[in-house]
Amino acid sequence: MTKVFGIVGFSGSGKTTLTEQLIACFAARGLRVNAIKHSHHDFELEAPGKDSARFRSAGAAEVLIASPYRFAIVRELRGDTEPTLAEQLARLSPADLTLVEGFKHDPIPKLEVWRAGTGKPQLFPDDANIVAVASDAPVESTLPLLDLNDAGAIADFITHHLALDPHADR
């Protein structure tokens, strides 16, 4: 079973940059890593007017675009309920770890990325699933405080917290 770990925080705190760095750290350690990014905004994977976008515009419920390099499936919700994190995780291929950016209210172990400069409150006092805080400033907390600028140390923390084994048989 894939282990799941969340990266949460307010916009502008550095979640995406940290998640990208963590993916690189874990991949360099030989782990297979998946990532889920939650967005509150609409997004396009292919420019309007291109083939798969035209198929979706015509009414296709799902479009798969494939090449020798990658494939993507785009499902139009068309008013249906957004799938839960558990439903999204079930769609992914097996991996050693799935990093989840967003889905901050889901009951998974999470790291809060917090910067005083955002002017936003800290999340950890109200979320028992936050197991550590990564920041570039001192934070008063009984949780482990990690240096936001040291992705390797944060990867070590996640590895230990989830008991990940980079040498496990795949």
Rank of each mutant, 00 (worst) to 15 (best):
48 P>D: 15
104 K>F: 08
68 P>N: 11
55 F>Y: 10
114 W>P: 04
105 H>C: 02
54 R>N: 08
99 L>S: 04
121 P>V: 12
39 S>T: 10
10 F>A: 11
7 I>E: 00
88 Q>L: 15
6 G>W: 03
111 L>F: 07
17 T>G: 01
69 Y>K: 13
148 L>A: 09
90 A>E: 12
79 G>L: 10
122 Q>C: 14
126 D>C: 05
120 K>W: 02
89 L>M: 04
4 V>S: 06
152 G>N: 10
5 F>K: 07
3 K>R: 15
141 S>F: 14
139 V>C: 05
159 T>Q: 13
55 F>Q: 04
110 K>S: 08
7 I>S: 00
101 E>C: 02
21 Q>D: 08
164 L>H: 08
48 P>M: 08
131 V>I: 11
49 G>H: 12
37 K>V: 06
26 F>Q: 04
51 D>Q: 05
124 F>R: 09
135 S>H: 09
80 D>E: 12
87 E>R: 03
48 P>F: 11
129 N>W: 14
120 K>M: 13
164 L>Y: 07
69 Y>W: 07
125 P>V: 03
135 S>L: 04
6 G>K: 03
87 E>H: 08
120 K>G: 00
122 Q>E: 11
80 D>M: 09
68 P>H: 08
67 S>Q: 12
86 A>T: 11
1 M>A: 14
41 H>I: 00
11 S>G: 04
148 L>G: 01
16 T>Y: 06
52 S>T: 15
167 H>W: 09
10 F>N: 13
167 H>D: 13
6 G>D: 06
85 L>Y: 04
19 T>C: 06
92 L>C: 06
5 F>T: 08
158 I>L: 11
32 R>E: 10
53 A>R: 15
13 S>V: 01
140 E>Y: 03
73 I>G: 13
120 K>A: 14
107 P>G: 01
77 L>V: 07
166 P>D: 14
44 E>N: 13
4 V>E: 12
79 G>Y: 10
72 A>T: 14
5 F>G: 09
114 W>M: 01
19 T>W: 00
3 K>G: 02
128 A>M: 07
123 L>P: 01
118 T>M: 09
17 T>P: 00
77 L>A: 07
110 K>M: 11
34 N>A: 14
128 A>L: 05
113 V>Y: 02
133 V>F: 06
98 T>K: 00
47 A>I: 05
142 T>Y: 05
44 E>F: 08
133 V>C: 09
49 G>K: 07
23 I>V: 15
140 E>G: 11
50 K>W: 08
100 V>T: 01
44 E>T: 13
7 I>R: 00
161 H>I: 00
67 S>R: 07
3 K>A: 15
100 V>F: 02
49 G>N: 06
168 A>Y: 03
131 V>Q: 09
89 L>Y: 00
33 V>Y: 01
163 A>I: 01
149 N>D: 05
36 I>P: 00
116 A>W: 10
56 R>G: 00
73 I>Y: 01
143 L>I: 08
27 A>F: 01
92 L>M: 10
155 A>W: 06
153 A>R: 14
47 A>L: 12
69 Y>D: 15
54 R>K: 14
19 T>L: 09
143 L>R: 14
34 N>S: 14
90 A>C: 09
15 K>S: 03
122 Q>H: 13
64 L>Q: 11
